[in-house]
Computed example of a mutant assay.
Amino acid sequence: MKKYHILSLFSVLALLVPCTNLVNVSAKTTTYNFFPTDNGPIDSSYSGTVTTIGDKPFLTLYAFNNNQFSLIRNRALAPKTAWFYDQTVSRNGEIYYRVATNEWIRFDEIEGFSGHHNRKNFEKKTITLRVGPVLPAPVFDGKFNDTGKTLAVGSEWVALEKPVYFGDDAYYQIGKDEFVAGERVINLY
């Protein structure tokens, strides 16, 4: 019986040893930023509501002129109140939400917010592509695997204007989950 326990212990250790090797893994990631780029342009792609914090008697407002913020001294927001915002901007590491015409509240004076994409900023323009004069163009799926389909030489296709990139290669979307390599097409208009 003791031999069995000792043998089992060595078997478990033998199984665990290969699991202790470190493996380097790298992956290309895409970051979608809800917050505006610091010192970037005013971002109107989100709108929603902000709720002011409740532990101050009033919350300060700022005016945005000449690409910088200044304190508004004759107006303030009440604590624990909700306000609609339609633009965000970041200056010197501080994020501001526009709650009225040229009245902004800083991120550190809100305790909650909700937001959604404004649809108007996501309109997708299309272009017409022609498959190059020499070889047909293979069609790839959304994971950039060859689907086995090809587009005929000289044929024209409507595609989304902005390509997506896989590695260094550009691909145009021509259908739902269908992409063609930019190197195989000519952008007509």
Rank of each mutant, 00 (worst) to 15 (best):
N121V: 01
E123G: 11
K143I: 06
Y165V: 15
Y165K: 15
D141V: 11
K149F: 11
D146L: 13
K149I: 07
A100C: 02
V139T: 07
T101Y: 05
F144Q: 14
W104A: 07
P136I: 07
E103F: 03
W104P: 01
G167F: 02
I105Q: 02
V134L: 13
T101C: 00
L129S: 03
T147E: 06
K124D: 02
I105S: 02
T126R: 09
T101H: 07
K162T: 13
F144S: 11
F122Y: 15
N145I: 10
H117G: 05
N118K: 14
R106Q: 14
S155V: 08
A137F: 01
N102G: 07
T128V: 15
G112D: 12
F122H: 13
G154H: 07
V153C: 04
K143M: 13
T128N: 13
T150C: 05
K120A: 12
F140C: 10
D108Y: 06
H116D: 09
R98V: 08
V131T: 01
P136R: 06
V164F: 10
V158Q: 15
T147P: 09
E156L: 06
P163N: 06
R130S: 13
E161T: 04
Y97A: 10
L129W: 00
F107P: 00
K125A: 13
E103N: 06
A159P: 03
K125M: 11
S114M: 08
D146T: 02
V134Q: 11
T101G: 05
G167C: 06
I105W: 04
E111T: 12
S114V: 12
K120H: 06
E161V: 04
T126W: 00
K162H: 05
E103I: 04
G154I: 08
E161S: 14
F140L: 14
E123R: 11
L129E: 03
S155D: 10
L151S: 05
R130M: 15
V139C: 08
P163R: 02
F113G: 04
E109N: 15
D141E: 10
V164K: 09
T126M: 09
P133S: 15
W157F: 05
E111Y: 03
K149Q: 14
P133W: 00
E161N: 09
G142P: 01
K149W: 02
T150A: 14
G112P: 03
F140R: 08
G115A: 14
R119E: 15
W104N: 01
E123M: 07
G112H: 12
K149G: 00
H117I: 11
W104F: 08
F144A: 12
K125N: 14
T101M: 02
V99T: 05
E161F: 05
E103D: 11
E109F: 10
I105E: 02
D141W: 09
A100Y: 08
E103Y: 04
P138W: 06
F166R: 14
R119C: 01
R130N: 03
A159K: 02
F140Y: 15
N145E: 11
E156N: 13
E161H: 05
N118M: 11
G112M: 07
D108P: 00
L135N: 13
A152M: 10
G148D: 09
E111W: 04
A152D: 14
K120L: 09
V164S: 14
H116F: 08
E111V: 12
W104L: 09
N145Q: 14
G115S: 08
P136H: 03
T101I: 07
